[in-house]
Simulated assay, not measured.
Amino acid sequence: MDEGDRAASLAGGRLTIDLDAVVANLRHVEAATAPARVAAVVKADAYGLGAGPVAAALAGAGCRDFFVADLAEALDLRPHVGGQASIHVLHGLWPGTEALALEAGVTPVLNSLAQVRAWAELARTEGRRLPAVLQLDSGMSRLGLSDDDVAALAAEPQGLEALDVNYVMSHLASADQPGEDVNAAQRASFERLAALLPARPRTLANSAAALGDPLTHGDLVRAGLALYGVAPGPGPAAGLRPVVSLSARVIQVRTLPAGTGVGYGLTYTTRGTERIATVGVGYADGWPRALSNRGAAWFGGVRLPIVGQVSMDSMMVDVSALAPDALGAGEAVELIGPHQSVADVAALAGTIPYEILTRLGRRYARRYVGGASAQGMRA
């Protein structure tokens, strides 16, 4: 038994990531946004799915631009994408880490005058221009150079002479709501601010804008959620292939008489004789506690309601609709798959797909399928 098979035999749940589907989704975004380049957003461990294997598959498919949150993620990513790929750090650099970023060949997204000046000072010390991205705050008020900061840079153009600015960028606050007036207002603000600086390629669109608003495409789009097979805006994930499937194993099945309380707080009481299965996945595995008494698992096309509270390591589902011998200890029920998507789970839990993906725990047996990068990557 190899390591992957051993992990699968011991874990309470299995998370399967389809790398071919990730690449197919890259191609879908490329077709929708050409001639813009498509960068892959692989921050937060590729939204919880494993930045190493996911980014390696994307790099193997020709993707050369990657975005992560911080320098630690960039350093971890570099071995998986090769030395020629551009790794952009969205948070910029903590003071004092500029030399480390330069050594790793990382491109910072500069969000403040202090970050601009520190990176430019290193460039002057090195005697060469260093790559950078300038982020402009077009109205989200999260990260980026303010109107005053841009005006200061425009008034002293020599301040940017030490930098090779690859892109100017911004981020839309409501890209997943394409009809919102704020999107047009942010596009206008971005164009106004960018026009004050030396002309450089522009990047504004995330997945939602890339697939929903051609006016935002610019020169580079930054695809994240769409790569992982989830619709980034309202409506179904048309053209995107599901990437994730998740199953949980049954620990035991019990037949309970009417009037029996189930789970912490006894928040569910059996209405008649019911067969209740306990499965080995809980909120410590990233399965939302908010699904208590409202979510479901699936087996053979049959919906199995979650009953009682989702606890740390397990939860209970009502399997009364199945034949008595249909499901036993060690067998698996579907949590995410053909009958229940990531978006479905998020809607039931009152959250967003990003949170569902990024919270999927490390206790699952992980299995990568498809793509040359999947070889030897089961855990």
Results as ranks from 00 to 15, higher is better:
residue 1 M to R: 13
residue 3 E to Q: 12
residue 6 R to C: 05
residue 7 A to L: 13
residue 7 A to S: 09
residue 8 A to D: 15
residue 9 S to P: 10
residue 9 S to Y: 01
residue 9 S to M: 09
residue 9 S to V: 07
residue 10 L to A: 12
residue 10 L to V: 02
residue 10 L to T: 12
residue 12 G to F: 07
residue 19 L to T: 08
residue 24 A to N: 13
residue 25 N to K: 07
residue 28 H to V: 15
residue 29 V to A: 09
residue 31 A to Y: 01
residue 39 A to S: 15
residue 40 A to N: 12
residue 41 V to Q: 10
residue 41 V to E: 14
residue 42 V to E: 04
residue 45 D to W: 07
residue 47 Y to C: 14
residue 51 A to N: 12
residue 53 P to W: 15
residue 56 A to P: 03
residue 65 D to E: 14
residue 65 D to S: 09
residue 66 F to R: 01
residue 71 L to F: 02
residue 73 E to K: 00
residue 85 A to R: 00
residue 86 S to R: 15
residue 87 I to M: 08
residue 88 H to G: 08
residue 91 H to K: 10
residue 94 W to F: 12
residue 101 A to S: 01
residue 103 E to L: 01
residue 108 P to G: 00
residue 111 N to M: 06
residue 111 N to A: 09
residue 112 S to P: 06
residue 112 S to Q: 01
residue 113 L to F: 01
residue 118 A to T: 02
residue 119 W to D: 11
residue 122 L to V: 11
residue 126 E to N: 04
residue 129 R to D: 12
residue 134 L to W: 02
residue 135 Q to G: 10
residue 143 L to C: 10
residue 144 G to F: 00
residue 146 S to R: 03
residue 149 D to M: 02
residue 153 L to T: 11
residue 154 A to H: 07
residue 154 A to Y: 11
residue 156 E to R: 15
residue 161 E to D: 15
residue 164 D to G: 05
residue 174 S to P: 00
residue 181 D to G: 13
residue 182 V to I: 14
residue 191 E to A: 15
residue 192 R to K: 10
residue 194 A to K: 08
residue 194 A to Y: 04
residue 196 L to Q: 15
residue 196 L to H: 15
residue 198 P to C: 10
residue 199 A to H: 13
residue 202 R to S: 01
residue 207 S to A: 02
residue 209 A to P: 03
residue 212 G to T: 04
residue 215 L to C: 10
residue 219 D to C: 05
residue 220 L to N: 02
residue 220 L to H: 05
residue 221 V to D: 06
residue 221 V to C: 09
residue 222 R to P: 05
residue 223 A to F: 01
residue 225 L to K: 11
residue 225 L to E: 14
residue 226 A to L: 11
residue 227 L to I: 13
residue 232 P to I: 06
residue 233 G to A: 15
residue 234 P to V: 08
residue 235 G to K: 01
residue 236 P to Y: 09
residue 238 A to M: 06
residue 238 A to C: 07
residue 239 G to F: 07
residue 240 L to R: 12
residue 242 P to V: 05
residue 242 P to W: 00
residue 243 V to M: 09
residue 244 V to A: 05
residue 245 S to V: 03
residue 253 V to G: 03
residue 253 V to M: 03
residue 253 V to K: 06
residue 255 T to H: 09
residue 258 A to M: 03
residue 265 G to I: 08
residue 265 G to R: 00
residue 270 T to E: 01
residue 272 G to D: 14
residue 272 G to W: 04
residue 272 G to N: 11
residue 273 T to Y: 02
residue 276 I to E: 12
residue 280 G to F: 02
residue 282 G to P: 03
residue 283 Y to K: 07
residue 290 A to G: 02
residue 292 S to R: 00
residue 295 G to D: 04
residue 297 A to D: 00
residue 300 G to V: 10
residue 308 G to R: 02
residue 309 Q to I: 04
residue 310 V to I: 08
residue 316 M to Q: 12
residue 316 M to A: 08
residue 317 V to L: 08
residue 321 A to Q: 05
residue 322 L to H: 01
residue 324 P to A: 06
residue 328 G to E: 02
residue 332 A to V: 03
residue 335 L to S: 04
residue 341 S to M: 12
residue 341 S to R: 03
residue 346 A to N: 09
residue 352 I to F: 15
residue 359 R to C: 14
residue 363 R to C: 10
residue 370 G to L: 09
residue 371 G to C: 09
residue 373 S to G: 00
residue 374 A to L: 13
residue 376 G to M: 08
